[in-house]
């Protein structure tokens, strides 16, 4: 058994007001997939302050380039974009060497997935997923094409704004997060029942990637910046009970 001398320093309590509640009836699928009892508060232990780590043996350099990682002889159709940013914690410290995974529809709004039957065509040169690990400054970078909006079955006429799904690990399993990245200025953001599960307008702004002209490649690729913030951790530890008491 692991026997750390002290109870480990904890990650800050998650501010649930910054996140969607479980039950959001305008996003219909949540109605039967939302716990009704309160979550039980759990004081963190070694299993909560630790989490999986990934290295260069796990992924390949090509994995973050969605323009090339599924090429079947050509490039995918669509607006060429860079999505980049930093993974930070709530103390504004970079989160290095952490796995970031993304997935998205193609430029026509169609996913390469057997369950997606939208009439927009599959792009033979586009897989729609990528992954990378952050550098020592928490920086990450993807090249892809801008995904298209797509209709979905919720209300009869609901459309998802262009978005990229993003999965991040952090240094501990209690920082684990999946979110979606939207694009600044998209009028569908305000109409989307999934975006609007987030109760706070500032919080919605924080899942909206910003046009970043300084990171574009002139005559080639436009750029969006998306910083991701994971839970922070106490720097000091407070033991109010001695072991054995």
């Amino acid at each position: 058994m692991s026997t750390p001398a002290n109870t480990p320093a904890e990650y800050y309590q998650r501010d649930r007001k910054q996140h969607p509640p479980a039950f959001t009836p305008t996003y219909k699928t949540s109605v039967t997939r939302s716990p009704q009892y309160s979550l039980i508060s759990l004081e963190q232990t070694v299993g909560e302050i630790s989490g999986p780590r990934f290295g260069h043996n796990d992924i390949d350099p090509i994995d973050n380039d969605l323009i090339k990682n599924y090429t079947h002889g050509g490039d995918p159709i669509g607006e060429r974009i860079i999505v980049h940013g930093r993974v930070l914690d709530e103390n504004a410290r970079p989160v290095p060497n952490t796995l970031v995974e993304i997935w998205q529809a193609n430029a026509g709004g169609r996913y390469r997935h057997k369950k997606d039957t939208y009439l927009a065509p599959i792009d033979p040169n586009f897989g729609g997923c990528g992954r990378t690990t952050t550098d020592e400054n928490g920086g990450y970078f993807f090249r892809t094409v801008k995904p298209g909006a797509y209709p979905w079955r919720n209300m009869v006429n609901d459309w998802r704004p262009a978005h990229i799904h993003v999965s991040v690990f952090g240094a501990s399993f209690s920082q684990r997060l999946i979110t979606q990245l939207y694009f600044e200025g998209d009028p569908l953001i305000a109409k989307c029942p999934i975006v609007q599960t987030i109760p706070d307008a500032d919080a919605i702004d924080r899942v909206t990637a910003k046009l970043d002209m300084n990171a574009t490649i002139p005559l080639d690729t436009i750029a969006y910046r998306f910083d991701i913030v994971l839970r922070g951790r106490r720097s000091t530890m407070f033991e109010n009970r001695l072991e054995g008491n």
Binding site: H19, D89, E101, Y111, H113, D116, G128, C129, I198, D200
Partner: peptide
Amino acid sequence: LDYLTETPSQTAGPYVHIGLAP
């Protein structure tokens, strides 16, 4: 205080397999 705030969660959606288990 100059803390940042955690990025909000969004559902993994029906196509999570593409990204995490292609």
